[in-house]
C-alpha cells in the first residue's frame, strides 16, 4: 500500500513536513515561504531550561507552531491525535494509510535507525510523514533525508514512543480538508508582523533581539565565572543549536532572507528585497561568529579569540537584526 506522495528534501523537518503535506493537497509553497508564513524565525537563550546541564539556545519558535500557524491561516482543517497505547497508535496509523491519507508523526530521533549515530540524542520533536506500508516496512518521508526511507513496525513504534523530555506519545496529525485557495499576500504581511513583534517587543531579557544581547552578556562572563573548560562546552552547545541539522545555515537567517526575497516578488515590494539582502548579511555575521567560536572552543586560535570579542560580534548582530525588523514592522500590502 503506497500513497502517491512527493518527498522533497527540506532544511528543517517541520517546514518540510508542512510543505510536503500541503503540496499533497494542492497547496504548493516553498520551504522558506512555509517558514515565513508560520513566523518560525525567533531567538531565545534560556539559562533556566537545561540541555546537558547547559542553557538552551533556540533560533526558532517552539516545535509545532509553524505547522499550526500555516494551516490555521489558510483555513486548512487538521486532526491531531495522541495515544497512551502503542498498539492503538499503530492501528490508527494503518487505518489512515488504508484510506490513502499521508500522516505526519512526531518522533524521537534516538532510535531513528537511518540517522547518523553522532546525531542520535534524546531529542523528541522531530517530524516525519508516513505515506505507505509495504510488507512490514513503513515508507517514510523524513524532510532532512535526501531519499525516501523505511522503518519496520518495531522501529516506528519505538520512535513514536520515545522517552525523555516532552515524549511524543505517538502524536500524529493529518489534513482533513482544504477550505479555500489561500490568499498569500495578507498572510505574508501578517507573518512578517508577527515575527517582528516577537523579535522586538517581548518584555523579557531572554527573547528576541534583546535575547541576543543577553546571551552576549553571559558569554562575556563565562571564562571567569565557569572556567575555561565549561565555557568552551557552553559555547560549543550554542554552535550546535545554531548549525544543527535543519536551520538552512546560520540559524534560519538565510532561510528567512529567502522568504523575504520571495515575498518581495509576490507583493511587488522592492524594499523587502533590500531587507532580504540585509538579512543575508546578518546570516553571514552569524557564520563568522560560529567560525570564530569554534576556533575558540577548540583552542586552535592560541588565545587570539576572546569571549569578549565573540560577545561584541553578537552585539553587532543584534543591532543588525533590530534594524531589519524595525523596518519589517512597518511593511504594508502594496
Amino acid at each position: 500500500m503506497k500513497i502517491e506522495f512527493q518527498h522533497i528534501q527540506a532544511a528543517h523537518c517541520e517546514n518540510g513536513v508542512t510543505a510536503n503535506l500541503l503540496r499533497f493537497y494542492g497547496v504548493d509553497l516553498s520551504e522558506p515561504m512555509v517558514f515565513g508564513l508560520g513566523s518560525g524565525y525567533f531567538f531565545s537563550h534560556m539559562p533556566f531550561i537545561k540541555l546537558n546541564g547547559m542553557a538552551v539556545t533556540s533560533f526558532r519558535v517552539l516545535p509545532g507552531w509553524i505547522f499550526k500557524r500555516v494551516t490555521h491561516k489558510f483555513g486548512i482543517r487538521v486532526r491531531r491525535l495522541k495515544f497512551t497505547n502503542p498498539d492503538k497508535a499503530m492501528l490508527a496509523l494503518d487505518n489512515l494509510l488504508e484510506q490513502g491519507i499521508p500522516v505526519g508523526l512526531l518522533v524521537g530521533v534516538f532510535h531513528l535507525s537511518y540517522f547518523p549515530k553522532e546525531y542520535r540524542f534524546h531529542f523528541n520533536a522531530h517530524n516525519i510523514t508516513v505515506f505507505g506500508k509495504e510488507d512490514d516496512k513503513y515508507l517514510i518521508s523524513d524532510p532532512v533525508m535526501e531519499n525516501v526511507e523505511t522503518l519496520t513496525c518495531d522501529e516506528l513504534r519505538k520512535v513514536r514512543f520515545a522517552q525523555g523530555t516532552y515524549p511524543p506519545r505517538g502524536r500524529m496529525y493529518y489534513i482533513t480538508g482544504v477550505a479555500r485557495t489561500p490568499d498569500l499576500k495578507p498572510a505574508i504581511i501578517k507573518g512578517i508582523h508577527k515575527t517582528a513583534k516577537d523579535m522586538l517587543t517581548i518584555p523579557l531579557p531572554m527573547f528576541g533581539v534583546g535575547g541576543i544581547r543577553y546571551m552576549a552578556g553571559r558569554i562575556r562572563k563565562w571564562p571567569v565565572k565557569l572556567g575555561e573548560k565549561a565555557a568552551a562546552l557552553n559555547l560549543s552547545q550554542i554552535i550546535r543549536m545554531l548549525e544543527e541539522i535543519g536551520t538552512g545555515g546560520a540559524g534560519f537567517r538565510f532561510m528567512y532572507a529567502a522568504f523575504l526575497q520571495e515575498s518581495s516578488e509576490v507583493l511587488g515590494n522592492p524594499l523587502l528585497n533590500e531587507l532580504s539582502r540585509e538579512m543575508t548579511e546578518t546570516g553571514d555575521k552569524w557564520r563568522e561568529f560560529a567560525w570564530q567560536a569554534a576556533r575558540c572552543f577548540k583552542n586552535r586560535d592560541k588565545g587570539q579569540v576572546s569571549y569578549g570579542m565573540l560577545a561584541d560580534m553578537l552585539l553587532d548582530i543584534a543591532n543588525r537584526e533590530e534594524k531589519v525588523f524595525r523596518q519589517l514592522r512597518k511593511i504594508n500590502v502594496g
Binding site: 553522532e118 562546552l233 560549543s236 554552535i239 550546535r240 548549525e243 544543527e244 569554534a294 572552543f297 577548540k298
Partner: peptide, 12 residues
Amino acid sequence: WMPKNEAIRLAW
C-alpha cells in the same frame, strides 16, 4: 561545516 563538526565532536 567545520564549526558544527567540531561542536558535535566536542559533545561526544
